[in-house]
Design a protein around this nucleic acid. Structure first.
Length: 635
DNA sequence: CATTGCTAGATC
DNA sequence: GATCTAGCA
């Protein structure tokens, strides 16, 4: 249920930018022959022609709708081009669209706080940029890009014919007696128009946008005039606009809550909500939601634009409808392996490119039992600490599945079938790359450290217990060039399996921070703190006492990714950017506080920052991190 | 389960 | 952590 946020006093300028039929545009850029044609993107096509997930405006003109089947679309529009989503590992692969979305975000993030809201939508807080523009160059000269802004749609302005509209808009944008708030909004509209032009020039994609004083209103109108247009919401037009807005159109009211408003309170439009006292709404829906409803009816929304360009989780899944349902462990395992392979690749990229580490692995499934129809029983979701390495993820995911299955079956001996599977990596943290990116880990044993062994009964001793310190080999193709400076050919190495005490370690009683073979903190401590201070080369100190170059090369993706192990890293150069090299992985929660206390203060602070990453902007992101995520923006 | 495959947020 | 709601291509 939605919750109201305290709203800022100062008026803000917020934009919501939404790509026009995004997947179609991505495909049209790949194959320009599709431009201007009725086109749709479909997922799979073996069953009724596949499901449409994006439809071009030309195709919409023929009555083609999303969620039609390919066959149906062909009937309605025989000339339609149906482009299939790429398939990898037997499942739809959306990476093409994800990276296209990132191109757009990289551009839109240039003018203010930017929040990636979905693969093709962002919110911008342009308050500062708009104020600056107002101070330096009030919108009065119809030059250059200003022409674009003058094409905005202004909510509440009479916009009869096209030329009339532009004239009115220009008058609105430039009127000298405008409210300060309206002037800010006008500046926001100009900035957004500029950004949209840049997006088009640099990516060939068109988008639409809404500009208003809060996220809710910006989002509401971003799709009002599509494609490739923008709409501004002056304060003066808010009430009139909301008065007739069907409740279901409001974000958060498209589902059960909106239905309840209609069915239980007879509320059909947002305007209808105005007649309910805040207390009344609170008693019906609780304090939080009641207050939220009361406020949105008045156009009030305090939600802030988060400064976040990257997704908070990575998930991949697949459904197995009807006859495709999975009915034995072997088929589940092979599909789970495929899903985990993709997931592993994605989190590995995130680590290499963005220096972020995911900490939790979650498995979701849908299932039904043989015989038992209806069976409202749900297959339980399960999570565990995430260990890097495809093999480990596969292993852990399978354990989570087995654990969930036992619970689902309640020790009945009936047949089962799985109709969907998904794995998700979440709780993703930035790795500070600044100072002593030394960060290493340690781990303390708490039971939380061992992943996925919920059902210990089935598996005697789980190898995954060794996951204290994870070393992650970088995938070959993802290694960054800088790594090679150090030792060509062999960018990093990991200690060979036999040196690795992984197997022994798993039997080490908890609480014992890894001692042997691990480079971790112990080595660091044994050298005394002073060592740390002399240089930032902590990597050398900690990872490989003999020096980075000396370690052997055993760069195999995953399984050799022995945990508990120290691997060499590319980050040898002192203070320099740990560029692409892969840092060690660790579970933040596994850091033994007792050990941390023994570290030098400066390191302690750094680690603390990790464990509880500040929500404040300050420590939040580093430019280098972000920029490396996106393809180089041409300028 | 024939919409599929993602995401994010709130609640307890 | 597990579950539920919601939104979007």
């Amino acid at each position: 249920m939605p919750v109201a946020r305290p709203e800022p006093q100062e008026p803000r300028v917020i934009a919501h930018v939404d790509m026009d039929c995004f997947y179609v545009q991505v495909e049209q850029r790949r194959n320009p022959e599709l431009r201007g044609q009725p086109t749709a993107v479909v997922q799979y096509n073996d069953w009724k022609g596949g499901g449409l997930i994006a439809v071009s405006y030309e195709a919409r003109g023929f009555g083609v709708k999303r969620s039609m089947r390919g066959d149906e679309a062909k009937r309605v529009c025989p000339g339609i081009n149906l482009v299939q989503v790429p398939v990898a590992r037997g499942k739809a692969d959306l990476n093409l669209y994800r990276s296209a979305g990132s191109e757009v975000v990289a551009i839109l993030a240039s003018k203010g706080k930017c929040e990636r809201a979905s693969i093709d939508e962002v919110y911008l807080d342009l308050t500062d940029a708009a104020k600056e523009m107002l101070l330096q160059a009030p919108p009065d000269s119809p030059e250059g890009i200003f022409m674009e802004a003058a094409k905005s749609n202004i909510l509440g302005l009479p916009s009869s014919d096209a030329s009339e509209k532009e004239k009115n808009v220009r008058a609105w944008l430039c009127r000298p007696d405008a409210d300060y708030e309206d002037k800010l909004l006008a500046c926001g509209a100009i900035i957004v128009a500029q950004l949209r032009v840049r997006v088009l020039e640099e990516t060939q994609f068109t988008c639409s946008a809404g500009i208003a004083h809060n996220k809710m209103l910006a989002k509401l109108v971003s799709g009002m005039h599509k494609p490739a247009q923008q709409t501004v919401v002056p304060s003066s037009s808010v009430q009139g606009f909301l008065a007739s807005l069907p409740v279901k159109k409001m974000k958060q009211l498209g589902g059960k809550l909106g239905s309840s408003l209609q069915d239980d309170l007879g509320v059909e439009t947002i305007g209808d909500l105005l007649s309910f006292a805040e207390e009344k709404l609170q008693e019906q829906y609780g304090v939080n939601t009641g207050t939220w409803l009361w406020k949105i009816a008045r156009g009030i929304s305090g939600e802030e634009v988060e400064d976040r360009l990257l997704p908070k989780s990575h998930g991949c899944g697949k459904t197995f409808p009807g006859p495709k349902a999975l009915k034995n462990s072997a088929s589940v395992k092979s599909w789970l392996d495929q899903l985990c392979e993709e997931l592993s690749e994605r989190i590995q990229s995130d680590l290499n490119q963005n220096k972020r580490i995911a900490q939790t692995l979650t498995l979701h499934a849908r299932a039904s039992k043989e015989n038992e129809r209806d069976s409202t029983k749900k297959f339980p979701s399960k999570s565990c600490p995430l260990r890097y390495g495809t093999g480990k993820i596969q292993e852990d995911a399978m354990k989570l599945f087995e654990s969930g299955l036992h619970e689902f079956l309640e020790s009945q001996n009936t047949g089962w079938s799985i109709t969907s599977l998904s794995v998700t990596a979440s709780k993703i943290f930035d790795i500070p790359s600044g100072t002593s990116s030394i960060l290493r880990y340690i781990k303390g044993p708490s039971s939380a450290a061992s992943p996925a062994i919920p059902d210990s009964s089935s598996v005697p001793d789980d190898p995954s217990l060794d996951n204290n310190v994870h070393v992650t080999p970088i995938h070959e193709e993802q290694c960054e060039p800088s790594i090679s400076e150090k030792e060509d050919g062999k960018r990093y190495s990991s200690i060979s399996a036999k040196q690795c005490p992984a197997n022994e370690e798993k039997r080490i009683p908890k609480k014992l921070p890894e001692v042997k073979g691990t480079s971790s903190i112990l080595k660091f401590l044994s050298r005394g703190q002073s060592a740390l201070h002399e240089k930032r080369k902590s990597d050398v100190l900690i990872c490989s006492p003999q020096g980075p170059g000396s370690s052997s090369e055993a760069n195999k993706p995953e399984e050799h990714n022995v945990s508990g192990q120290a691997a060499d890293r590319s980050n040898i150069n002192s203070g320099g950017e740990p560029s692409g090299s892969n840092p060690w992985l660790f579970n933040v929660e596994d850091i033994d506080p007792a050990v941390v206390e023994e570290l030098p203060l400066e390191i302690q602070r750094e680690i603390q920052g990790w464990i509880r990453p500040s929500k404040e902007p300050s420590t939040k992101r580093r430019g280098s991190t972000i920029s490396s995520y996106f393809p180089p923006a041409r300028s």
